[in-house]
Amino acid sequence: MVVSMTGFGRGRIETEQVAVTVEIKTVNHRFCEFNIRIPNQLAKIETHLKKTLTTYIKRGRVEVHVTLEGQATTKRGIQIDWDLLDQYVRYINEIKDRYGLSGEVNLHELIGRPDLILIEEKDEENEEIETLVLQAAVQATEGVVQMRLQEGKALEADVKANILHIKEHSQVVRNLAQLVVEQYRERLSKKMVEFVGGQVDETRILTEVALFADKADINEELTRLESHIEQFLKILLLQEPIGRKLEFLIQEMNREINTIGSKANDSKIAMEVVEMKSFLEKVKEQVQNIE
């Protein structure tokens, strides 16, 4: 089964206190790589989150963005610098005594000084929020998987069509290869007649033709190419990640096609080789996005 590595999904869960949103985007990558952006208070569940996602996504670059909204995500508190406050009050009283000044320490002025009294907001750990994040992540992942499956169907159709085109051209090459040796024999005989004036050495012709046939024989390459094509089509049906297997077969097919082109020594076969390489290049590009 063909699964694309491109997908997007969004999960959102809301309660009276908090709203959790998880967005997941996947693109093609040689391995399975995660980039998770998550609030500090939830850092401890990052490993659990990654483990959950890998049950659905086996390959690709996975970008995860987790956001929290609501008052339940933070805890407010007052932070007082008691040492500094003691110094303020002590020095104010010393100044009054030294210079004979009157008046009391103004509490409102002290409270209003941010260097003395500070209201802090701290992220607090909350198991309920952590559970909501994991639930939203699964929801988002289901969306990603659905998109990857849909794109995979389109990829499979295109890849299969291009592979079958290569198969068709390989059959044309096989038919042409049967004629190449005979055509070479005819050309050689004609040249020898022109050169020696009618006295043709059949033994010499047969020897030259045999050498040419051995050098230009591409039956083994065609057989291996057709075998790779059949394996490729079978792998498309497997219920597992298949991208790397397909990439390996593409390398092998490319090797066989290049060898056919270099050995055939025929213009018509050379044209068929160009067509096969063109279709194989399209397959290569498509397979790069298959999980």
Results as ranks from 00 to 15, higher is better:
E226R: 14
L236R: 10
R187Y: 00
E168L: 14
E208D: 09
I45N: 07
V2Q: 05
G143H: 10
R10Q: 07
V273G: 05
V89L: 08
E221C: 06
L188Y: 02
P39M: 15
I250D: 03
I57D: 04
N126Y: 05
V180I: 03
E240M: 12
G100N: 13
I163L: 10
H108A: 13
V283K: 15
M147V: 14
N40V: 14
V200F: 01
K25R: 14
A157Y: 01
Q150T: 08
R30Q: 05
D86R: 15
Q251E: 04
T259C: 04
V62S: 04
F212I: 08
K50V: 04
K245T: 07
S189L: 12
F232D: 05
L179I: 05
A19L: 07
A210F: 01
L84V: 03
K44R: 15
E285N: 11
L107T: 09
N93V: 09
Q288T: 10
S170D: 07
E151N: 07
E252Y: 03
G77Q: 13
E247C: 06
Y56E: 08
R244K: 15
G152N: 11
E46G: 09
F232C: 12
T74H: 08
V2T: 11
I205D: 03
V22R: 09
V200Y: 01
G9M: 08
E46L: 13
I24M: 06
G112R: 06
D201C: 06
E130R: 14
K58L: 09
Q135P: 02
L53M: 11
E220N: 03
T223K: 09
G9Q: 07
I38K: 15
V274D: 00
R90I: 11
